[in-house]
């Protein structure tokens, strides 16, 4: 089953144009969106979340995104934008709880919502921070809270824009494993914008390479090549096998080095 399906998809923003002729993202996949700054990664993600005007076709779970009512749409997908902020004071527990807003049937969060939130806080090592104000936290802690909030919705499709910004190394690996098991368990889909190639190569199944608004490559794990990766990212990439694992060696490419 395809969770997301794009055909003749185009998003314009001022002079910038993002075009994707065809793309299908199916259940159970961890998809990394890679590319340099300004390549359209965030634009792609927010468009997939239904927050931008687009031309062409965008299907969510086989249905036209435009025809799915908002609440239903956001039960199916959960979007973590970059640089999320909060203008008013709230406790961490409540911030994570609000992730379940689309699941509300009445006007209050239920006991089950509270239990799920408590479980998630534990999973994200945030239990001790539950009663603190979101504004009091450090940048990395805030990012962890927002990630937990995104997962709390239990939506099958996760759209995460640089979810590990400012998160410490240990928690990055912890969370990315958590995401993997989440996607497996839900038969879901996780589309993540990343800058850490090492993390991407280690944990993700599929790679979308974006440059200047167009999809340069859509590769499986085994198809990933040093040259393609290097060309899109503007660096020299070398794969190094170590202990049965593929590691990356990265250097700045010299201008015109490939020619």
């Amino acid at each position: 089953m395809n969770w997301l399906e794009l055909r003749d998809f185009e998003v314009r923003q001022g002079d910038f144009r993002l075009r994707i002729p065809e793309l299908r993202l199916s259940a159970g996949q961890m998809v990394a969106v890679l590319g340099p700054n300004g390549s359209g990664k965030s634009t792609l993600l927010s468009a997939l979340a239904g927050l931008r005007n687009y031309r062409g076709t965008l299907l969510l779970g086989g249905e036209d995104l435009r025809t799915i009512p908002e609440k239903e749409r956001y039960r199916r997908l959960s979007y973590l934008p970059q640089g999320g902020h909060l203008g008013l004071p709230f406790e961490v527990f409540y911030v994570v709880l609000t992730g379940r807003y689309p699941l509300l049937s009445g006007r209050r969060y239920t006991e089950a919502d509270h239990r799920a939130t408590a479980r998630l806080l534990k999973l994200f090592d945030l239990e001790a921070l539950g009663g603190r104000l979101f504004g009091e936290l450090s940048g990395g802690e805030r990012q962890r809270v927002l990630l937990a909030r995104a997962l709390n919705r239990e939506a099958p499709v996760l759209l995460l824009d640089e979810p590990f910004n400012a998160v410490d190394l240990r928690h990055q690996h912890l969370f990315v494993r958590l995401l993997r098991s989440y996607v497996r368990r839900k038969e879901g889909l996780c589309v993540t914008v990343l800058h850490d190639l090492g993390l991407a190569v280690k944990y993700f199944d599929r790679f979308l390479l974006l440059k200047e608004g167009s999809l340069r490559a859509d590769l499986g794990r085994s198809e990933l090549s040093e040259t393609l990766l290097g060309e899109v990212m503007g660096v020299e990439v070398k794969f190094v096998e170590y202990g049965g694992e593929r590691l990356l060696s990265i250097d700045l490419s010299r201008e015109g080095g490939r020619a």
Binding site: S46, A49, G50, L51, E70, K71, R73, Y74, R75, L77, S78, Y79, L80, P81, G83, G84, H85, L86, G87, L88, F90, T98, G99, Y101, P102, L146
Partner: peptide, 11 residues
Amino acid sequence: AFDDETALSSG
């Protein structure tokens, strides 16, 4: 109280 994208994408 959240940024617009978070609020909108919460439905």
